[in-house]
Nucleic acid binder design. Structure first.
Length: 858
RNA sequence: GCGGGCGUGGCGGAAUUGGUAGACGCGCUGGACUCAAAAUCCAGUUCUGGCAACAGAGUGUCGGUUCGACUCCGACCGCCCGCACCA
């Protein structure tokens, strides 16, 4: 039996698509536009299965939409700046540019082998001079529009390597290379003013109706708008006041302490005189800068000795603690603690033996007996123990407390956001240089337009502490563009999130000599369907949304939301393997024995099988897509990626699953290309002997064809790729059992084959083209229209109605579709099972759901 | 710690969104073909009891709403993603 020869077929059709320029997009087109984009890859070296999954999904959408008559833009590029290139330079002495472009060449070749319908003429890498040149222009425009500015902020400092570390380079509070305890350090850095759009970014979420709810919810919580009050506490024996932010001014009478951040200016001032406090601040600084590390640390504080005067009672004062869970970046960096109604405050109060006075009691609970144990009460209720607030609801008390604070000059209502401005400075080499010069006389001076781009120098040295740009005197020292006196370049480069915040805009006019060609951008944008990992649900997507608004504000685009549709796909997972020494092993290094145990293939020694995790190089639980494509072909790999697992869930890699996909590819080939049953010639009219609504096998198969078109179409519209594959397989099974050889069957077989080929086209484009040719077509399947279902053949004339007695299934019956309710009732009551259950008495109730179910309640 | 999500046969999953739980595939079992194997084809396959017809149980756990719950509500358990310098 012949096998489908994927190697020749895939090469042949990839060449044909390229020759006919099938996938290059042009704005000059009468069809409606459709921009589908998958998150572009970081060129890490080789593509991994996650890429195959992501890009296959995008390709199915692109090919499907093309078939449905859209002018599709489907571009690809490279998110090419970032840490790994520098690590390669440090560890192996490889030039970051060489390393990156080498990786891109490899990965481009690998992606091309997948047969993706991409417009490669638009390809670029973010490390291309042409790209970062335009990004530098955007930075300067942001600077001029006050959307970029400088301020001090904290970094992780490795005191041994004298280097700023990324959060992921801090492991258990220590530098990953040096092992030294890291410290927080303050540096002057560049920021983008994301908070200028806090409200806009929040409110526009409501209009993103093709985004997953969970992503919108995560963004909403991240922006974290909260209404509350700023309260000014007098400090005993001092003239300055402590400004505190709270969302619960109603609980002021339950206050038992104030707490300020270890980085609060007041803490730092007091620490100069107070060694205990200084020691505490130093300890907090060793936690690093990540919020996760700070919040998971045990709650701790040091009494500063200050006393804060209660705004509603001059004779009442509260201790002021410096506490490690108070974040300097949120609110005012200071809080008042009400332990009865906030869990963190409660834990802190229990630890330092501070009073816990409930001031809100749930409705209907006796205030006298309402006490707080291990859990703070955060629900609604009425105020108690609160003097003039007693008896008010929480909402009323909030308003009243705010009114009194305002009247007394002790505070104001205010809105606070969790969202912070975006720090974009990186003390690294492999990124987009920030195009400014520092002059002793003129301050910060933008690099003039005609001196752009500020090019990354290639002759840099790695291996010494700090940023290589800092150690490159010829690059760093330049005359001031304003006054001509000696000055120096900014040596910080931009966060790589900046690069990925506008690449989708650049794809509209990738070769323009300015950031954006307005005509191209207004034609293609917004991205109609964006596809990428859920891990980007917050940062990348929020930064891209901000950046689009910022570009709109300064006139580059006429658009606020960049992505009108979003789909987040799950990861690709595989079990992990370790040998006796605990070393990670590749799946190709292990063998499964007949008894199910797993051993090292080369040595026969036992192997520990770990749970399935996201494929990662470090754990070696990876399967190389190139091997799979070489063994089974791209279509098999693509089909496996789309089968079985819903695209938003994690996919478990399985060799058996790939084999299953491979078998189906061959089954289709045999059935259609090597059919030994009669198939009508293309274009033959329907034979008069065929009644499409009849009960012959041919008619039933024909109806299965139209149902499949209908189902696959709606599945693909809803990202139900796994369901679409199941429907295609069902149709294949239905056609396979049609063994009649008459004229009607031959004609139906032709309809079925043509339909199958067109339905699989988006998923298995090479096999699709090959079969399309076998069916006698001279044209490309890539340019063939999507099939249309005949609505009259989609629905059957009869339906199966389930019959329940007291909610339990007792049988089924066939009824004409849309039968009158009276007919259904009498048919049900005539059923023996029902008659027996009813036993002569009329049923208490008879629930009839048309065409679906009847429930007899006795 | 905080925010978000997920949980269905031996396995991946389906279920028209409150109406026949287990489509489709993998695996397994039996059969056909073959000297044999592979490939292919056919049949069976949620669990328990039964030769069978059939009966009972069943969608992470416990409880609730409903004629009816995988689906809605509450509590809990487990796992995953994010936490602002990984991309």
């Amino acid at each position: 039996m012949s096998r489908y020869s994927f190697k020749d077929v895939e090469a042949k059709w990839q060449a044909a698509w390229e020759e006919h320029r099938c996938f290059s997009a042009d704005e000059d087109d009468r069809r409606p536009k459709y921009y589908v984009l998958e998150m572009f890859p970081y060129p890490s070296g080789r593509i991994h299965m996650g890429h195959v999954r992501n890009y296959t999904m995008g390709d199915v959408v692109a090919r499907f939409m093309r078939a449905r008559g859209f002018n599709v833009l489907h571009p690809m590029g490279w998110d090419a700046f970032g840490l790994p290139a520098e690590n390669a330079a440090i560890e192996r002495g490889i030039d970051p540019a060489e390393w990156t472009y080498g990786n891109i060449d490899t990965m481009r070749r690998q992606l091309k082998a997948l047969g993706l319908s991409l417009d490669w003429s638009r390809e670029f890498a973010t490390c291309d001079q042409a790209y970062y040149h335009q990004q530098q222009r955007l930075f300067l425009a942001f600077l001029a529009a006050d959307l970029a500015y400088r301020k001090e902020s904290w970094v992780n400092w490795d005191p041994v390597d004298h280097t700023v570390l990324a959060n992921e380079q801090v492991v258990d509070g220590r530098g990953w290379r040096s092992g030294a305890l890291i410290e927080r350090r303050k540096l002057s850095q560049w920021f983008f003013r994301t908070t200028a759009f806090s409200d806009a970014l929040l409110e526009a979420l409501g209009e993103l109706d093709r985004w997953p709810d969970r992503v919108k919810l995560m963004q909403q919580n991240w922006i974290g708008r909260s209404e509350g009050a700023r309260i000014l506490f007098r400090l005993k024996g001092r003239d300055d006041r402590l400004e505190v932010f709270t969302t619960r001014p109603d609980t002021l009478f339950g206050a038992s302490f104030c707490a300020i951040s270890p980085n609060h200016p007041l803490t730092l001032a007091l620490a100069e005189e107070n060694p205990d406090l200084a020691d505490f601040v130093a300890r907090c600084n060793r936690l690093g800068t990540s919020e996760e590390a700070i919040e998971t640390a045990e709650k701790e504080g040091v009494d500063t000795g200050l006393r804060a005067v209660h705004p509603f009672d001059p004779d009442w004062d509260l201790p002021v603690y410096a506490a490690n869970f108070v974040l300097m970046d949120y609110g005012t960096g200071a809080i008042f603690g009400c332990p009865a109604h906030d869990q963190r405050d409660l834990e802190f109060a229990r630890k330092y033996d501070l009073s816990v006075v409930p001031v809100v009691a749930p409705e209907g609970v006796d205030p006298a007996s309402f006490g707080i144990g291990e859990e703070a009460f955060t629900g609604d209720g009425r105020l108690i123990n609160s003097r003039f607030l007693d008896g008010l609801t929480v909402a009323e008390a909030k308003a009243e407390a705010a009114r009194r604070l305002h009247a007394g000059g002790d505070g104001e209502t205010t809105v606070s956001y969790r969202l912070r401005d975006w720090g974009i400075s990186r003390q690294r080499y492999w990124g987009c240089p920030i195009p400014v010069v520092h002059c002793r006389e003129c301050g910060v001076v933008p690099v003039p337009e005609d001196a752009l781009p500020v090019v990354l120098p290639r002759d840099v040295r790695f291996g010494e502490p700090g940023n290589p740009l800092d150690h490159h005197p010829e690059w760093k020292h330049v005359p001031c563009p304003a006054c001509g006196r000696p000055a120096f370049r900014e040596t910080d480069t931009m966060d790589t999130f900046v690069d990925s915040s506008w690449y989708f805009i650049r794809f509209c006019s990738p070769h323009a000599g300015r950031p954006v060609d307005p005509a191209a951008a207004s034609y293609w944008l917004p991205v109609d369907q964006y596809i990428g990992g859920i891990e980007h649900a917050i940062l990348h997507l929020l930064y891209a949304r901000f950046f689009t608004r910022a570009m709109a504000k300064i006139g580059y685009v006429d658009l606020e939301e960049p992505f009108s549709g979003l789909f987040t796909q799950g990861m690709v997972c595989h079990e992990t393997y370790r040998d006796e020494a605990g070393k990670w092993l590749f799946p190709t290094e292990v063998a499964r024995q007949d008894d199910g145990s797993v051993v090292h293939a080369a040595t026969g020694r036992p192997v520990t099988v770990g749970r399935s995790e996201s494929m990662s190089k470090s754990k070696r639980n990876v399967v190389d897509p190139e091997t799979i494509v070489a063994t089974y072909g791209a279509d098999t790999a693509r089909l496996f990626m789309m089968s079985d697992t819903p695209p938003d869930r994690d996919l478990e890699w399985s060799d058996a699953g790939v084999e299953g996909a491979w078998r189906f590819v061959n089954r289709l080939w045999r059935m259609i290309a090597e059919s030994d049953l009669p198939v009508a010639a293309a274009g033959t009219p329907a034979p008069s002997g065929l009644d499409p609504r009849g009960s012959t096998p041919a008619a039933e198969t024909l109806r299965a064809v139209h149902k499949a078109i209908n189902d696959v179409t709606s599945d693909l519209e809803r990202f139900g790729f796994n369901r679409a594959v199941a429907r295609v397989r069902e149709l294949t099974n239905a056609v396979a059992v049609l063994s009649d050889t008459d004229e009607a069957a031959a004609w139906v077989r032709r309809q079925a084959f043509e339909t199958l080929v067109r339905l699989i086209g988006p998923m298995m484009p090479h096999l699709g083209e090959a079969l399309w040719e076998q069916l006698g077509h001279q044209t490309l399947l890539a340019s063939a229209p999507w099939p249309e279902a005949d609505p009259r053949l989609v629905m059957d004339d009869t339906v199966t109605i389930a019959v329940q007695v007291n909610g339990k299934l007792r049988g089924t019956m066939e009824m004409p579709r849309d039968a009158a309710e009276g007919e259904v009732r009498s048919a049900v009551l005539a059923l023996p099972v029902v008659a027996e259950a009813v036993a002569g008495r009329p049923p208490r109730r008879l629930v009839v759901v048309p065409n679906r179910i009847v429930n007899v309640v006795v």
